[in-house]
Each structure stands twice: as C-alpha cells, then as structure tokens.
C-alpha cells in the first residue's frame, strides 16, 4: 500500500512528461484533467448544437457552483489526509437552518445567512472535535454525521420543504449582476480565495504537509490536531455556504438537498489531482474537476440521458480517476 504515496524516482521525460510537470508546477492542474475537460467540450459541441453558447456555459457554471464549493472543502480535507463524508448532509442541514431562521423566526437576511454558514461550520467543528479529541477515525465520524445532519434537517423542517425566503436572500441564488448568476460569482470568489490560502499561506502548506506525513509535521512543531480541527470546521463552513447557494437558488430550505453530493464533490477533487491519501491538492485542479463533472451532467442532460445513468456515470468516473492515478504512480515507481 505504500506505493500510494510513492513519488516518481526520475524527472519526467519527453515532451509529454515536461508538459505534465509544467502544468502541475505552474498551474497546479493535472494536465490529464485539462485534456479530459477539453475532449468533453469538443465532443459535446459536436453532439449538441445547444452546448456551445454563453447561456449554456453560464448554466454549467451555475450547476457547478454548489458542487464546486463542496469540492473545495473536499480538497482541503483530502489533501490533509482526512475525509469528510458528511458534506452533502451538512449542506442540506445548513439550508434548512437558514430557511428556519428566515421564514419561521423571521430573522433578517444577514442573520439567516450567518446561521446557514454557521450551522455548517458547527457541524464541521463537531466532526473535528470528535476526530482530534476522541480519536475516532474520520471515516466513521463523518459517516455518522452524514446520518445525524440529514436526520436533524428532517427534524427541524418536520420533513417538509420550508418555502418563501426573504427577497435579499433569494438574490444570492437568483440575482444576476451583469448577467452573471450570483452563485457563480460567489463560487468563483470562494475558489480564488481558497486557492490563494492553500497554495501560498502557512495554513495551506501545513495542510499538505500534514497529509503528506503527520509525523514530519508534528516533529516540525505544527499543532496537528488543532489544524485538523480547523480543517473540518472549514469544511463544514463551506458545506454551509453550498447550502446557502442552493437554498437561495430554489427559494426554500429542502431537507433532502445535497443528497449524495459528497460523492460528486470528492470525485471532482480527485479527478482534479487531489491525492486520496493526502499531501497533494490544489483548488485550480479541483475547479477543472468540478467543471468536468458539470459538463458531463450538462451534456447528459442535453442528450436527454435519464438521470439514473448520470449517477452511474459519476461513480464510474471516480473509480476510473483513482485507477489512472494509481496506475501512473506504479508505472513511475517501476522505471
């Protein structure tokens, strides 16, 4: 199993190899994922006359924004060697909490917005606390939270959708300043900030180092459990933001929102080049991964493929992406 983290013993050779290296070093993006995205776009353009239009591109970005924010959370947690399976459920819970604040309690929009993101961050903090203080594996804790958050969302909403958010809140989901949907703007701004943090700050570097070797990080004096706690809190907070984008777009708090979204988010992070076992990850790569998922879903919709098949497609893409990653690592360590 150690070959999961093996690093190539030789610099990459040839034009393809050098392009690969340059892509990762300069852009923090895996070349393969860029090419897959390009091929998908070309294929879709050929298959559907509706694909290549500004409005459809905005559609793709809009559909990608929720998953994209979750995928950013997945990138942080995965590259630190952790795992957050509760992303989708926490997103659903956050949307319901925000809607309950706004509709049932009549809270002003800023309070409701803070409650939405805060509910996610709180759920994430509970994850982080149990993982770092009680030493229960992240897989179990976040799997448990997947159930708890979903159940709590149903309890709070009494199993019903909470309709009728205030106008200002709906603007966050449906507003179109300069013709660009608000969720897309929020998603891009979040991605920009989170990319800077991961690639250029101590927090980001420590995140990757912890995922690479917890022992090395600890020896270097990094407070690993505090850092992990912050990461899970951040992950929950981002799930809360995704919940905000989603609920404000559909103008309601839906307790079933975000069902199985963690699958898509983790897939997007991994096809974007995040190492499943930690130590490597970039938000730009994840953006490409999320766009691949978005184009794939959009394309299957345009081609009128039943949505059941879309689930199968996403699952297959996840397995294939990890397979290619492992296959390349093994090939490289054999050279």
């Amino acid at each position: 199993m150690t070959n999961t983290k093996t690093v190539s013993a030789h610099p990459r050779q040839g034009i393809w190899g050098r392009l690969q290296s340059a892509s990762i070093e300069r852009l923090h993006i895996r070349l393969e994922s860029l090419i897959v995205l390009l091929i998908l776009c070309v294929a879709m353009t050929a298959l559907s006359p509706y694909f290549l239009s500004v409005s459809n591109m905005l559609n793709i970005l809009l559909a990608t924004s929720t998953i994209g924010v979750l995928a950013i959370a997945a990138t942080y947690v995965l590259s630190s060697g952790g795992l957050d399976l509760s992303l989708g459920s926490v997103m659903g819970l956050s949307g319901v909490v925000g809607a309950a604040f706004a509709v049932n309690l009549g809270a002003p929009t800023p309070i409701a917005v803070i409650a939405t993101v805060g509910a996610g961050a709180l759920a994430g903090a509970v994850n982080g606390l149990i993982i770092t203080r009680a030493f229960v594996p992240a897989f179990i804790v976040t799997l448990g939270m997947l159930g708890i958050a979903r159940g709590l969302a149903l309890v709070i909403s009494d199993g019903r959708v909470i309709y009728g958010l205030p106008k200002a809140m709906v603007y966050l989901g449906q507003g179109r300043p300069l013709g660009i949907p608000m969720p897309v703007l929020i998603f891009l701004a979040t991605a920009f900030i989170m990319h800077i943090v991961l690639a250029f700050t101590k927090f980001g570097r420590h995140t990757l180092s912890i995922g690479d070797s917890e022992n090395a990080a600890r020896t270097a004096g990094i407070n690993v459990s505090r850092h992990r706690f912050l990461l899970y809190t951040l992950s929950g907070g981002l799930a809360g933001l995704a919940g905000l984008l989603f609920s404000s777009r559909i103008n309601s708090g839906d307790p079933t929102a975000g069902l199985t979204y963690e699958l898509t988010a983790i897939t997007a992070a991994i096809i974007g080049g995040t190492n499943l076992f930690g130590g490597r990850g970039s938000i730009l790569g994840t953006m490409v991964g999320a766009l691949i998922m978005g184009v794939l879903q959009n394309g299957l919709n345009l081609l009128a493929v039943q949505s059941y098949y879309q689930q199968m497609a996403i699952g297959s893409v996840l397995i294939i992406a990890v397979f290619i990653d492992q296959w390349q690592l093994r090939k490289e360590s054999r050279v």
Binding site: K5, V7, R205, H206, L208, S209, D212, S213, N215, A216, A217, T219, A220, G221, I222, N275, G279, R280
Partner: peptide, 15 residues
C-alpha cells in the same frame, strides 16, 4: 520525518 511529496525548501522550513 520528511514530507515526501513536498520539495526541499518546504521540508527545510516546515513549520
């Protein structure tokens, strides 16, 4: 106690 996927500088200044 090295972080093997990170480069030389990152390891030397880790933390």
């Amino acid at each position: 106690a090295l972080a093997k996927q990170q480069d030389v500088a990152s390891n030397i200044f880790l933390g």
